[in-house]
Nucleic acid binder design. Structure first.
Lengths: 159, 159
DNA sequence: GCATATAAGTCAACATGACTGACTTAAAAT
DNA sequence: ATTTTAAGTCAGTCATGTTGACTTATATGC
């Protein structure tokens, strides 16, 4: 495994450096999601509900199709959690004015309360990490994760 | 949401900056795992098999208890995938010499072949991202993710 | 206006991966 | 000899993902 040089790129990466990067992502995701999972379970919800709630909160009035694109799951999978969230009064649905086939999703007051609670937990964790790592590191974190993401979805992060 | 200053910490973080950090992690994890999932499904395996294979490869001779600590799942969940991997000849088990209750796990040649294939996919993705982001960014990525991880597990990354 | 395409929802069936709690077995430690 | 530990197992449950086929309503293009 003692790789030698490989081309003009000055950035030489050993396997163990790459594995460290892989494992950091695994452990961070594991711990990042665990906290909210605990809150959600007290509502009888799971991670799938959280994802729906989260992205509806970011884009009030998002359509079902748009949400499916973000989550990359099947209509059936989303429909299960979505109809549960609507039935229990966390999410409201209204027909779009221009295209009345589209159903636009919004959080109700009850939904917003839950969303705030969950987002506070996550903002606290990432905020603490950002502060511990420092401003320079944040930019690096963003750059690397953005490059990991499929090219088609990177445009979601233009500011 | 136009927060004003908050204390002596010079690093001021707006909600939308934190949400960007949260979403980067979501999309990156989604895309990072998707590629391997496709390979695994051709073997009739899932993500859980991959995680076992991956960490056995990193620590040949790891015990079941150690693996459970890393994955933070129940014995039953691990046992299902592990016994499947052993039955199909991807993982071998031997009793520890000193403590014969402990079962030490190793990849077989067949298991190593699969592991190499999966790791190559992941190393390529993270390697490309590292190169695209640059050496400085890598350090930032590491710092932030390390701070997201539960304190008890950070020691896994001392070099 | 009619044919086609699209957005959404639904039904049935299934796989995977997580969980709990209780129990067994073997071996180590006290 | 008793207790603790490591591992495995049994039985049942739940959440979240999948597929494929079908319906309904609406929009769009000819």
């Amino acid at each position: 495994m003692t790789d030698l040089k490989s081309g003009p790129n000055p950035l030489f990466l050993r396997h163990d450096q790459l594995h460290q990067g892989i494992e950091l992502l695994f452990y961070a995701y594991r711990d990042f999601t665990a906290e909210c999972d605990a809150v959600l379970s007290t509502y009888g919800f799971g991670r799938a509900h959280h994802r729906a709630i989260y992205f509806i909160a970011r884009s009030p009035g998002i359509s079902v199709a748009e949400l499916l694109e973000i989550l990359r799951i099947t209509k059936q999978s989303l429909s299960r959690v979505l109809s549960q969230l609507v039935r229990e009064g966390f999410v409201s649905v209204e027909k779009a004015q221009t295209d009345r086939r589209r159903r636009l999703l919004r959080l109700t007051d009850k939904g917003e309360k839950l969303e705030k609670r969950l987002s506070e937990v996550q903002r606290a964790r990432i905020g603490d990490a950002y502060r511990a790592a420092g401003g320079n590191a944040i930019e690096g974190y963003r750059k690397v994760l953005l490059s990991i993401i499929d090219e088609t979805d990177r445009k979601r992060f233009v500011e």
